[in-house]
Write a protein that binds this DNA or RNA. Structure first.
Lengths: 241, 241
DNA sequence: AAATGCCAAGTTGTAGGGCAACTGGGCAAC
DNA sequence: GTTGCCCAGTTGCCCTACAACTTGGCATTT
């Protein structure tokens, strides 16, 4: 019933964010030297350990580079070692649409690869997810969640069949977050407990293309679904906001 | 002339990798509690601070979740908060091809969006990069590097014109690494100081589609270029390895 | 017996000190 | 001018201590 209460950010994370936004907003430029750990500790009023953990996170993302004996320096954007999408990015609907655009291309690739490489076991798993989506759902509070789960599983299964671990990880990484957020959007116009026949046809088109191993059709079908999803999100946005 | 010598990994990073691979390889399953920080410190023979920094990195990536007073627990893969591609992934040619497949889809999206939204200023920037690629290069040691730079800049400029910050970041994040690695592959058959007319035509097709604002053509042209690049890499692999 | 309140051990979070390893700049000797 | 050295400053690592918190068990109460 109740969600776990939101815990305040720890000190290292707070300081890491502060420093990261200093870099992002240009208050610290590429090549600049960060203040020493002792000075930062004094400035933020925390111990040096906390500052060290904060800088360790920045270094881990490749935002800064620490040279022992010299200091920590802001690195150029090209050498970041991670592509991070923080949870807040999913809040704004505009951001969400941009992420959906990015996802569309990756899902298209995944479907295309899956059409090429799918095993019969892959096919069985995907078919099972599709059957789950076709089935009408009971009208209980979890109906929407289960519907979204079914769609996630379907596309995760397709990604898994692609055999490309980077595509798999990327889709696994984004799918649940995006879908959870989409769910909260849909929930406002609370009537979407069932997958509309239009959407279902989009999914089935992807599946049948994978069955017949036609990679171009699969790519197009996946792309069309996610572009349509993006448009549907925009329309709901027009109505709701 | 000499490259800076390779520095050994710091202790926290080493321990973070050890723990991460324990999770990756299933020695620590989802929901498991990690050994306490003191025990880990004793086991690795380091101080608790080092262990803390290591766990801080894992937590930052969402691999584990630390609850004060309870312990650190392995989280499920879906809630990872970052998509990370470590530098080693670019070493193996097979991995590189998989990354190229992923990139193809994203670049296709970028080109498509760029065709829709490009301003005349965007167009000018992209055109300039294209001209840079057309120009024959002087035969000096840096020729290959400059050639690759020109191709990076071209596709970075297209990404920038897409207006989608996630697409931009993702492409900026991957392009340079992939291209550097491609460069070292090409360098072995040292003769690629100039962009072949075939490849140049692929680039020009992308550009002209963006000029004429035909998003479908742009998407296809970009996809075809990166798929062709992947095939070329595979062929070189056959010869060289 | 069941529910409640409380305590104690264990764990993570933060503080603050200290030393080793290293860097960069200035200075003296050559 | 070049070399070698020293020194202040910085990061990397270690140590101890305490605060904040969780968990499980025990005692108390109902």
């Amino acid at each position: 019933m109740y969600l776990p209460i939101e815990r305040p950010l720890r000190l290292p994370a707070t300081i890491a964010q502060a420093l990261a936004s200093d870099i992002q907003d240009g208050r610290l430029k590429v090549g600049d030297k960060l203040p020493g750990e002792q000075k930062l500790a004094a400035a933020f009023g925390v111990s040096r350990n906390v500052v060290r953990e904060a800088i360790s996170q920045l270094r881990y993302d490749g935002l800064v580079e620490a040279r022992q004996g010299a200091g920590a320096f802001v690195t150029s954007p090209e050498q970041r070692s991670a592509f991070r999408i923080s949870p807040e990015c999913f809040e704004k609907r505009r951001e969400l649409r941009q992420i959906l655009d990015l996802l569309a291309g990756v899902h298209a690739t995944a479907a295309s690869l899956a059409a090429l490489k799918r095993s019969t076991a892959d096919l069985a798993r995907i078919r099972k997810c599709l059957a789950q989506m076709r089935k009408p759902m009971a009208e209980d509070p979890d109906a929407l969640a289960r519907r979204l789960d079914a769609e996630i599983n379907f596309y995760n299964a397709i990604a898994a069949a692609s055999g490309n671990s980077y595509v798999i990880d990327f889709i696994l990484f984004l799918n649940r977050r995006v879908t959870e957020r989409l769910g909260s959007v849909f929930q406002k116009n609370a009537r979407a407990t069932e997958i509309s026949s239009v959407v279902l046809e989009e999914h089935e088109a992807v599946f049948s293309a994978i069955v017949s191993q036609s990679k171009n059709d699969a790519r197009e079908a996946a792309r069309l679904h996610f572009e349509a999803a993006s448009r549907r999100l925009a329309r709901r946005g027009d109505r709701a906001e």
